[in-house]
Amino acid sequence: MAKIKVETTEITIISHNEKDYISLTDMVRPIENGLALIEKWLRNKNTIEFLGIWEKMYNPLFNSPEFEGIKMEAGLNRFIMSVKQWIEKTHAIGIIAKAGRYGGTYAHKDLAFEFASWVSPQFKLYLIREFQRLKDDEQKQLAWSAKRELSKINYRIHTDAIKANLIPSEITNQQAAIKYADEADVLNIAMFGMTAKQWREANPDKKGNIRDYASINELICLSNMENINAVFINDGIPQSERLIKLNRIAIQQMRILEDTGGRYLLK
C-alpha cells in the first residue's frame, strides 16, 4: 500500500493481483456527497462502454452477454448500477470493493484515471503526475536494492580473495582490517581517483563515505571491479599493476554505461 497527495487530497494505492488500484473513495472524499459520484459515474452509458472494453481486453472471465444487457439499459432513467452489482453481474476485475481499515472502492489505474477525468480534468492531470512520481521513486528504490544485493555478493568474493591470498595466518585483526581497507582504496582510487580518507578530508560536512555519494553507474562499475580484483589477487598480480588495470577497466565500463568518454583518474 502507498499514498500520494494530489493537491490537498491524500489518495491510497494498493496492489491487487500485482496491479496498481487507486482509491476512488479517496478521490471524492473532500467533495460534499462525493460517494454518490461513483455510482453516478457507473450509471453513465459512456462509462459502461469504457469499462466493458477494458474488461474484454484484460479479463478472460468477463461475462460479455450480461454486459451487453447492461449496456442496452445504460442511459435510461430507470437504470441503476452499483459497484457491487457491476462486479457480481459481469465478474469484473477492474473495480473492487475493499473492506477494513483502508476500505472503499478501488479501480485499476486505467479506470481510475478515467474516473478522475470525469470528476475534473485538472484533477486527473495532477493525479497522473503524482502517480508517475511514485512509480519513478519505486523504480529507483528497486534498482538501488538490486545493486546493494549484488554489491554484497561481490564484496564477499573480494574479501575472501584478500583473506586467502594477502593476509598471513599470524596477522592480527587490526592488521587485517588495515589490509581490507587498503584493498578497498585500490578500487576507490581506480574509480574516483582518491582514497576514502582523502574524500572525507575534502568533504568534512558530508555524512557517510565516498560510495554513499556514487551514482548508479559508478556503483555498478565498482561491484564489477570487486569481482575482477578478486581474480587479479588470486592470480598473484601485484597491487600496483592491479590498480592500473582496474582504472582502465573503470574508464572502459563508465564509457559504456554513460557514453561520455570515460573518467580518466590516473596520470
Rank of each mutant, 00 (worst) to 15 (best):
M1R: 04
A2D: 14
K3N: 03
K5Q: 09
E7R: 06
E7V: 14
I13M: 09
N17Y: 08
E18K: 08
K19Q: 11
D20R: 00
Y21E: 00
M27G: 09
R29L: 15
R29W: 07
P30A: 10
N33T: 09
A36Q: 14
L42H: 02
R43S: 08
R43K: 12
R43A: 15
N44S: 13
N46M: 11
E49S: 10
F50Y: 13
G52K: 01
I53N: 12
N59M: 05
N59V: 03
L61P: 00
L61R: 10
F62E: 06
F62A: 04
N63S: 06
F67E: 03
E68Y: 11
R78P: 04
R78T: 15
M81N: 08
V83M: 09
V83L: 11
V83K: 03
K89S: 14
H91R: 14
G94L: 06
I95L: 06
I96H: 01
A97M: 13
G100A: 01
G100D: 04
G104T: 00
A107L: 04
A107F: 03
A107Y: 02
H108Y: 13
L111G: 07
A112Y: 09
A112D: 06
A112E: 06
E114C: 05
A116H: 03
A116C: 05
A116I: 07
S117Y: 12
V119N: 05
S120P: 07
F123I: 01
K124F: 04
K124L: 02
Y126R: 12
I128M: 08
F131W: 15
Q132V: 11
Q132M: 15
R133Q: 05
D136V: 00
K140Q: 07
K140C: 03
Q141T: 08
W144T: 02
W144G: 04
S145N: 12
R148A: 08
E149I: 13
Y155C: 07
D160G: 01
D160S: 09
A161S: 07
N165S: 13
I167G: 00
A177P: 03
A177C: 09
I178H: 11
D182L: 14
A184P: 00
D185T: 08
L187Y: 11
N188C: 06
T195H: 08
W199C: 02
A202C: 00
Y213A: 02
S215M: 05
N224A: 11
I228P: 02
N229E: 12
N229F: 01
A230K: 02
V231N: 08
V231D: 07
I233L: 13
D235V: 01
R242Q: 12
R242I: 06
N247W: 04
N247G: 12
A250K: 05
A250W: 02
Q253R: 14
M254A: 10
L257Q: 06
E258T: 10
T260Q: 11
G261T: 07
Y264G: 05
L265T: 13
L266R: 00
